[in-house]
Design a protein around this nucleic acid. Structure first.
Lengths: 219, 219
DNA sequence: ATATTTTTTTAAGCTTACTTAAATTTACTT
DNA sequence: AAGTAAATTTAAGTAAGCTTAAAAAAATAT
């Protein structure tokens, strides 16, 4: 499948998962930086390939085949991220940028080699789950966003849900890294701000950030 | 630059180096598996991009820019081969197949990371020279083909010039590997066959093979 | 040197993945 | 419920990278 098609089904899949946003052509168009008309065309074309179900003016729904394709691309993306991070010590932003390109030119054979080499990891360096070779995500995500945490409790960072360089730079600077410990010191619910303590320093995060930082409570 | 363009200039560059064959559109077309007409179109298009000089019915000649592009792609190809061979112990055929795809989606940044990681090697696992980041091949190749070796002399294999799976399978099976020692036991010049001794076994090679296996004499 | 074969180019046409602009449908507002 | 705003689709057009078929030029053979 072409790069355009792979990115299209990937965008639909991710948008569905991250709910909130819809999967109508216009929204996918915005994500991919193409016109609404192009997205509608593509939707019809993919429907004829049985990758999705298309009904005029309705949200796009991936078929089983379409979802499998999306998960295969996502698998390659996340395996590359894990691999580049470990092997070349590249930053979260850098690995995302490179994986975005490599994911489309990686054979299943190579993907499996990378996975084996890494010990078949279940998560990438952002904490995003890596689908297995059959396109299955077996792990159940029990994490919650920092916005929903309780004052005085300790958490482990499990996921940094973003593609944004500035966000990653901020995280790297402040020790906000997959696996690290955070103590929630204060929730300013009115202002939707969260104060945390990490590495002996205190930082105040606004909703934009706390919504995409996921954590697990420590028992 | 697009994949089609990168493969086009690469084909011209390689054909020029391996002399013998010409660089007219028809020949490039055959190498790339496209029609003559498509090659002519592409040649005109690349001329307008200043990647090559095009004159009707003449051989195609890369400009400095075009050659630099070709060498940049070749650099990425060979770095990937070296890297995949070392990291995943993939065969010569497998690394070629994967590198053929990855070479077009690799940033200069990542290429340099791979190169550094490998200790900036000058040759890939086939013995082909790896251009540096400026697109220069600094090493002088003093090797000769097995066809031109002398009876009774010992040589080190320096290059396996092929893309062919069967050839690589044969080489792997018989210890014909970059860096290995061969003793030329007999040259049957009339039949263009060469008998060699390697790993305590004797094998007879025909011209098709001895022409693409390069060696260096041991002083 | 001319005739034939081969190669290269031109011409016309196709598909994919886009674009902008206009028309249509849906969603929202009052 | 009607009118307006927003989103979606249709229509027409573009560029890249191909195709086949015909025309033109070059290479080869006699």
């Amino acid at each position: 499948m072409s790069v355009a098609i792979e990115n299209f089904v990937k965008a639909i899949y991710k948008n569905k998962i991250n709910d909130v946003k819809n999967t109508k052509p216009g929204n996918i168009a915005k994500l991919l930086g193409i016109s609404n008309a192009a997205a509608t065309d593509m939707a019809k074309s993919l429907a004829s390939k049985n990758l999705l179900n298309y009904e005029k003016y309705k949200a796009l729904k991936l078929t089983k085949t379409g979802e499998k394709l999306a998960l295969n691309v996502i698998r390659k993306h996340r395996l590359w991220e894990a691999f580049l991070h470990k092997t070349f010590e590249m930053s979260l932003h850098e690995i995302h940028r490179e994986a975005e390109l490599l994911e489309h030119e990686t054979s299943d054979f190579l993907a499996n080699k990378i996975s084996d080499y890494l010990g078949n990891p279940k998560f990438d360096p952002h904490g995003d789950p890596i689908p297995n070779a059959n396109g299955e995500i077996t792990t159940i995500d029990t994490s919650i966003s920092l916005s929903n945490t309780k004052e005085g409790k300790n958490y482990i960072i499990s996921r940094l849900m973003s593609d944004d360089k500035e966000f990653f730079d901020f995280c790297a600077l402040n020790g906000l890294k997959y696996g690290n410990n955070v103590l929630v010191t204060k929730q300013f619910s009115k202002n939707k701000m969260t104060q945390i303590s990490i590495n002996n320093s205190t930082i105040l995060l606004n909703e934009d950030f706390t919504n995409i930082i996921y954590v697990n409570e420590i028992n």
